[in-house]
Design a binder for these strands. Structure first.
Lengths: 180, 180
DNA sequence: ACCTGAACACCGTTCAAGT
DNA sequence: ACCTGAACACCGTTCAAGT
């Protein structure tokens, strides 16, 4: 609050005429993150799986555009316009695509939770990397017995690899299923 | 740190002989959360889809057992035993189940990110509810034009409904897919 | 209506000194 | 090896008073 006030060239107390408290400000920040989502080329009247994927990728991109974007957005229920727009867009796309046995709300919610979960992990990794703490952390991963099946580091492989590719792989898993 | 020190009947400075800083302590807390996961009845030698679902449900239950459990666990890379155990268990189960075209690591990562994302949202809701702030927030949701398709509140419906059911519905979506 | 100054009750972290 | 006391540099929030 104090640093934000300084950036706005105002005294900290002045912020409390605009936001009830820090959490109220963070809700507004969450909507500001959603507001940067690029919806160009998304047409809810002719939905495709590719558009759903694009939608999630742009949601991810929007969060990645801000420090702690994932954590800001996660669980902040910003009751504002941009938040409503992305929710409705994703759900409308899905309504025209999914199996009739499923609920579009459940699918949209799963996709959004996957996406925010992925980005939180990703930004934590990037912060650790930038601070030079990542290598020490990976080094201290428990060396477990014998076989390579023991290394607990799929997360490590995913984070240090091509994250765009891995994110899309996860989306495809959700959309197309994993078992026969 | 100060409150934890008080609970441990020790001076704040003493904590810094055991943990480098607050984040280091939170990593240990994350592992402590994972350590409460009940793995009874999970047999990685004869994997079933039901076991995967149970595994994710117990992961959710473990996080729900602690204040801010989801946020503590998300993006904290605790390089400890319990963290490695749940990761390896989930992946081993999946290796025996998924379509050969998929990677067990990607699927496990998608399931974990979905689960932590869901729990973060859930705990934020529960905190808001306990603080009496939830109703005011939902009231302020933008009333958008005409049709009921406009309400942006799938998240609201999911959170205020049977969350166990909704969580499982999301898991099934991921495991069995959404499109033909 | 919006802002300032000043205060209140906190934080995380460090470090010499003790045992 | 582990802990205390005390300090340093911060926090979020409130509120009378100003304009």
């Amino acid at each position: 609050m104090r640093r934000l006030a300084a950036a706005a060239e105002v005294t900290p107390g002045a912020l409390y005429k605009h936001f009830r408290d820090k959490r109220d400000l963070q809700r507004a920040m969450a909507d500001a993150v959603y507001a940067t989502i690029d919806l160009a080329g998304i047409d809810t009247d002719s939905p495709t799986v590719d558009q759903v994927i694009t939608c999630c990728e742009r949601l991810r991109a929007a969060m990645l555009g801000f420090r702690d974007g994932g954590r800001i957005v996660a669980g902040s229920y910003s009751p504002f316009a941009a938040t409503a727009t992305i929710s409705a867009t994703l759900r409308k796309l899905l309504e025209g695509l999914i199996l009739p046995s499923l609920d579009a709300g459940d699918v949209a919610y799963a996709l959004r939770n996957y996406t925010t979960g992925f980005v939180i992990e990703e930004q934590a990794y990037l912060t650790l990397l930038a601070g030079g703490e990542w290598d020490a952390l990976v080094q201290s991963l428990p060396r477990q017995g014998g076989t390579e099946a023991g290394r607990s580091s799929d997360a490590v492989a995913i984070l240090t690899g091509d994250r765009d590719l891995r994110f899309r792989a996860g989306l495809k898993v959700i959309l197309t299923g994993t078992v026969a």
